[in-house]
């Protein structure tokens, strides 16, 4: 694998995480429990879409085949999307959405802090912007975990259920493979495994604060980085790609 191929894959992975998670967050638009939260979740979705645009545009430039952000966002087959599976799981109840945000934003805050030191100037610049936004998401999700965890019996239970459901999807965020290794050699990519302990500490601290059991080590789901998805991904793409598939090259 050449450095160029690895960098293309790396940008697609990060771009797809943002694109697909943004899709799930935006499903709360007009459905959130309160207007303030409606605004918050759609603001986050906007941050993620912005990040996806920067990363997919850059991926297209690296590939050098003239593909734009839109070509990459709307014109790929399912097996050519490389987001982590946690991004594509259904939005679930509010607790599920908040726990997913806590898990991913905490990882992103650590990951993008490291990526600001990347030898690749474009990735470092995207990271500098993203790290601030991810911190905002992380703080917001943390506040909600406290409110749900220390709220009613029902909210506490739902929080626990969401954590149990999503924990098996967190291992993927710290996986490493050939793509990462090739780029790590050039000081372009982040050592995913190295940020795991800080992630774990932050998550465990906050869960302990609200009296939720931290799940022990368990079997972790995997496949997203290889393009192998859950059954939900196809449904996302059916809706997301509808227009471009029905009216190819539509412009207005």
């Amino acid at each position: 694998m050449t450095e160029k191929e690895a960098l293309f894959s790396y940008c697609l992975r990060l771009g797809d995480d943002a694109l697909i998670h943004s899709y799930r967050l935006s499903e709360w638009c007009r459905n959130a429990p309160m207007l303030e939260e409606d605004l918050a979740l759609t603001n986050f979705a906007l941050d993620l879409t912005g990040r996806a645009r920067a990363l997919l545009t850059y991926a297209g430039e690296i590939e050098g085949k003239g593909r734009t952000e839109d070509d990459l966002a709307y014109r790929r087959e399912e097996r050519h999307y490389f987001n982590n599976l946690i991004c594509e799981l259904p939005k679930g109840d509010f607790a599920t959405t908040i726990v997913r945000l806590l898990f991913t934003a905490t990882q992103e805050h650590l990951f993008y802090s490291e990526l600001t030191h990347s030898q690749d100037g474009t990735l470092a610049a995207i990271a500098a912007k993203t790290v601030k936004e991810a911190q905002y998401h992380m703080v917001h999700a943390s506040d909600w975990v406290r409110r749900l965890g220390l709220g009613t019996e029902e909210s506490h239970e739902r929080l626990e259920r969401a954590i149990d459901e999503l924990c098996p999807y967190t291992g993927e965020m710290f996986e490493t493979d050939k793509v990462v290794a090739v780029l790590q050699d050039k000081n372009i990519a982040v050592d995913n495994a190295a940020i795991r302990s800080n992630w774990k500490t932050y998550i465990e601290d906050i869960l302990r604060e609200v009296g939720v059991m931290v799940p022990g080590s368990q079997h972790m789901q995997t496949g997203g980085r290889k393009g192998i998805h859950t059954e939900y991904m196809g449904h996302i793409l059916t809706e997301m790609q509808y227009l471009q598939r029905t009216y190819p090259d539509a412009t207005w």
Binding site: L46, D47, T49, G50, K129, T130
Partner: peptide, 8 residues
């Protein structure tokens, strides 16, 4: 240069 990532 963009301000926020998602600045429309």
């Amino acid at each position: 240069t963009p301000t926020y990532s998602g600045c429309p």
